[in-house]
Design a protein around this nucleic acid. Sequence first.
RNA 1: GCUGGAGUAGCUCAGUCGGUAGAGCACGUCCUUGGUAAGGACGGGGUCACGGGUUCAAUUCCCGUCUCCAGCUCCA
Length: 591
Amino acid sequence: MGHAGSKDALKAQDAPLFALRHSAAHIMAQAVTRLYPQTKLAIGPPIEDGFYYDLDPPVALTEEQLPVIEAEMAKIIKENHPFQQSSIAKADAVRRFAGQPYKTELVQGIAGEQVSLYTDGEFTDLCEGPHVGATGEVKAFKLLAVAGAYWRGDEHNKQLQRIYGTAYFTPEELQAHVVRLEEAKRRDHRRLGKELGLFSFEELAGPGVVFYHPKGARVRWVIEDYVRRLHLARGYEPVATPHIFRTDVWKRSGHLDHYQDYMFLFESEGMPYGVKPMNCPGHILIFASTTRSYRELPVRLFELGTVYRNEKSGVLHGLLRVRGFTQDDAHIFLREDQLVGELREILDFAFEVLRAFGFEQYEVELSTRPEQFIGTVAGWDAAELALRDALEAGGVPYTVRAGEGAFYGPKIDLKIRDAIGRSWQCGTVQCDFALPERFDLTYAGADGRSHRVVMIHRALLGSFERFFGMLIEHYAGAFPFWLAPVQAVVIPLTDRQVPYARTVLGRVRAAGVRVELDERNEKMQAKIRDAQLAKIPYMLIVGGREETAGTVAVRHRKDGDVGAMAMEALLARLRDEPLPAQHGSGQAGAL
RNA sequence: GCUGGAGUAGCUCAGUCGGUAGAGCACGUCCUUGGUAAGGACGGGGUCACGGGUUCAAUUCCCGUCUCCAGCUCCA
């Protein structure tokens, strides 16, 4: 995970705000230094939503001290020290920062003879700038959190304390930012998952494994149903493979060498096993189980494959990073000359799926050949070109991450942002020249000889868990009609209308709609409120008038009261609700 | 895994400077039979995350563990 916006982009984009936040970072470091003179300073840049400073104070800082630091910052701001740049020789800088090991290290890493310093009042920092004119210009700031961060981002180095804060030109903008953070909190899938009864984690069962409750499982079924249908329509063959394999498989695949830390391993009757962290070996064993002809390629094996990865405890995050998850995973075995066409189809497929779920904005990254690679340069070039072609054919903007491909092949990742702007990898399309070698995957060519296949690994949603989490945040829990766990609720006005309400329920249900009856002894208003909070698209209210007329008073969660309708008109309206499927039967909303 | 913070009813939280706890919502029963976002009364429900230690006594203090939160590292 990580923020896509680079510092340079930010600089160019919003230089004045950059300078303001950078100055705020200096003032914060200055304040901490006043409070704890032995503090050693590292770095303090502006970032997308604010700034931070990494420092190594003589005592551990806690959030309770943030107001104290803020108060000291306010003093420095009031003193209105001008920021003044100066330039000194590196040797002088090293002397100047004696007792500041991180600064010394930074100075020594700078090219050239001179280094740039910025001074405000008694405080001088190694810095290229730019800054605002004087500390008094920082009028709206707030410290947000204290966290740990490794020196130079390396976990083998000492962990420093990082204080996050933010700064804006006006208090109004700062306030707006705080409001945005609160809104994002309301969209948090972990909170909504609980409120809407979608899923839970159970402490007793262990971390990172998801329990889908009935409403969450309904949504999952709808998604599965949709995804399965599309795969069938696009020539994928469904397969199902085991969850545990003897470790011989994992030795052969290389997972035991490269992935062991992430694997759940166990033993039975003296035989070592591993729970699958990936589905590829299972699909490979199916492909390899018989002689393959060039005529049948590409072979596309698809599975909703559940995998388990022993992720480090600290990285787990709601549904977005879990230990057990199910991928919409396929492996395609083909000839190298088929690669281009197949990749184009896969990308087209991936974008279709993202659009169906309302994700119009995503980031696409192409990772190319790394230093260490296997296979032929020609093969890599063909694969990279194929990936580029496919992207450009779709008019998709993408960024290239040069040399970031896997050792076995280049790949495309599709990333979506969550409610607070963190981006998460969902779909991935990877070319693979390695596993076909390791498992000796071949086909009989037209020449009667045996040839090596190429493999594509791809998942479009990525995993149901992560995708579901993103979907919840994307819609803030208000799923579109076709995905809503409960699409309509029948609300009888009094218990005299319950029999009629059951008739309505039966007819709507028979039309394939996920509908429930709320026959609690509550006032209609209370039932409406609960239905609104549950974000149910349709409320079908039946009182004496409707029963007499044989109609239903329809309320929509967004449009409110839309008036009484005859059953036929109601069913027609529900039928007209937009569905995502462009392929196949078009009845993806049905469950 | 690391740094910091937190775990009290199904949920959101209050509280106890050591004497085994409370609110709102939810849930149950009864009353109420209503017209587009909360009708009323009564009631049930907690090994205060778990395990040790100190103490006459631990939800409260100490140690350990687990889980969660923010960030770092990682994400094949």
